[in-house]
Amino acid sequence: MIEARAVGVQLGRPPSSAPSGALTTQRRTVDNITSAFQRGQVVAIVGRNAAGKTTLLRALAGVIDVAAGEVLWDGKPLQRWSARERARRVAYVAQRPLLSARFSVRETIELGRYALAPSDQRIRAAIEAFGLTEIQDRIYHELSVGQQQRVALARAWAQVDANGAILLDEPFAAMDLAETDRSATLVRRFVSGGGLAIVVLHDLSLAARIADAVVVLDAGRMALAGPIREVLTTDFLTRHFGVPFRLDIDGIPEPMVGQDGTKQVS
């Protein structure tokens, strides 16, 4: 549904200041990413800090321009879709959902319908799904960051069609376990209903639990991609992240951080 073809993104330098042939790969935040993301899957994007995870996600969401290659949605370059068609196909949720006006929870969620026909029913469904009914009239800024993340997810929920895509940047980072459980379950349910979710995650155990496939980025390039169980082996993870991993009782890789480097890899 979303396809990246040799995508390169460059941040912090005007593309007009150099001829396109002169772009050096070192300056690209992400470079030469080719990957297809299909409906019915949760795809995790993982990698170390500054690997280009957020940049790739933003490029796939069409909220930044690519310097090379192209991003296709349903077979068509995303720029060729109208604003309305784009809005109902793909929703993007940033890592820190900011809001510069004092809207209530409900008003914030309604912003998801900006380019689309207003739908009270969609708004209500999103509010109920994310357990926001009680706090729907509260001011967004008065919520905890975890609650704000839930509101942002609900906004995306109210925005895209059932077979659209939600692109989420560390959506659970500030959530407690119950909130994470509820939200992750909803993301799973969304893809079971024919949607696509692409999620940037730091927590590899969480990625292994909720994702079907994974893209591993390393210094802006694609290091590895494929079904999650095949890619996220303890061997690979130990090598890639420089921290020993072992499998927990469910067979999920678990990082052994804070162990003073002792080899505890099972």
Binding site: R58, A61, G62, V63, I64, A83, R84, R86, A87, V90, A91, Y92, V93, A94, R96, P97, L98, L99, S100, A101, F103, E107, L111, G112, Y114, A115, L116, A152, R155, Q159
Partner: peptide, 16 residues
């Protein structure tokens, strides 16, 4: 209203 969202999110909901 929609521009109150972060730049990326505002673009994602369809604001030019």
């Amino acid at each position: 209203d929609a521009s109150s969202l972060s730049d990326d999110e505002a673009r994602s909901v369809g604001v030019r």
